Simulated assay, not measured.
Amino acid sequence: MSGQEVEGAARGRRVGLTRSRVLDAALEIIDRDGLAALSMRRLGAALGVEAMTIYHYVPNKDALLDGVLEEVFRQSYSRRLRSGSWQEQLRSYAHPLVDQLREHPGIVPLMVQRPALTSQTLGMMEQGLEVLHAAGFPLPRALQMIHALIGLAIGHVVAGGADDSEDRLGHLAQEDLSTFPLVGRAVQDAGGSHLPEPFETALDAMIRGFEADLSTSA
């Protein structure tokens, strides 16, 4: 290790730098200014250290991006139920994941671009496969289910991430729907009724499909 690297590592220790703090700071930059604004130089400035110091906590920019994704998955995963039926556990993972992506929308393009296959995310996947395989799903199908669930969450946020069907109906009701009679009737018939949010509707349909697969293969 060169003298400059030793000095950088010592400076990092003096300011209480940790990998977790580095990832949190990177996520803050993405939240505030977008993914394109994240650089090692800017991250170092935000943490009060030279950019080279960051490399003692993440070896390169790719590892930094993987780590940021890992942190988002970790935060969502930490909120999930650890018991219950496989359906309940899928729901308890899906909703916090959507919440995390709504809180950090700048991370969504990165999540689409990168698989983020780190030891932590693979560990989460391993636990998910354990639950689904124990429920009777073949492992390849269980893996596909996990990917489908994550894709549903990402797609929902990319599409706007609205969490209130009544808001959507309200916007439609303000339009002139005279030439769209079925749309107008749907809005009128739904008036005053409490509808599930779009993500919940899609998640229900997905889980029912998984249940049908399981009953067919049994």
Rank of each mutant, 00 (worst) to 15 (best):
L81F: 05
L149F: 05
E7P: 02
A37P: 09
S39R: 09
R208S: 10
S178Y: 10
G123W: 06
M111G: 14
G3I: 05
I29C: 11
R19Y: 09
M111T: 15
L182S: 11
E5D: 13
L35C: 04
R21D: 03
Q87M: 01
K61H: 12
S85H: 08
L129I: 00
L97V: 02
R32A: 09
A173G: 15
L110C: 13
R42P: 05
L177F: 12
F180T: 13
E7Y: 12
R168K: 13
R79S: 08
S78F: 09
V183M: 09
A153Q: 03
G16C: 01
Q4R: 15
L177H: 10
H95G: 07
V22M: 03
R80S: 09
F73G: 01
E200V: 04
R14N: 08
L122N: 14
E166L: 05
A190D: 09
P109M: 00
G44D: 08
H133P: 04
A51V: 03
R42K: 12
L38Q: 10
S20F: 14
P181D: 03
T179S: 09
F210D: 00
A159G: 15
Q89H: 10
F180M: 14
I207A: 02
A205N: 07
L195G: 07
L101I: 02
L129F: 07
D99S: 09
S85I: 00
H171P: 07
R80N: 05
G67V: 00
E200P: 13
V49I: 02
S2G: 11
A202D: 13
L177P: 10
E175H: 08
L64P: 11
G191H: 12
L81Q: 15
S78K: 09
R91E: 14
P96D: 00
A159T: 05
Y93W: 13
P198V: 00
E175N: 06
D163P: 11
M1R: 12
R91L: 02
R80E: 07
L117W: 04
D99A: 14
A186E: 11
P181L: 02
A9F: 09
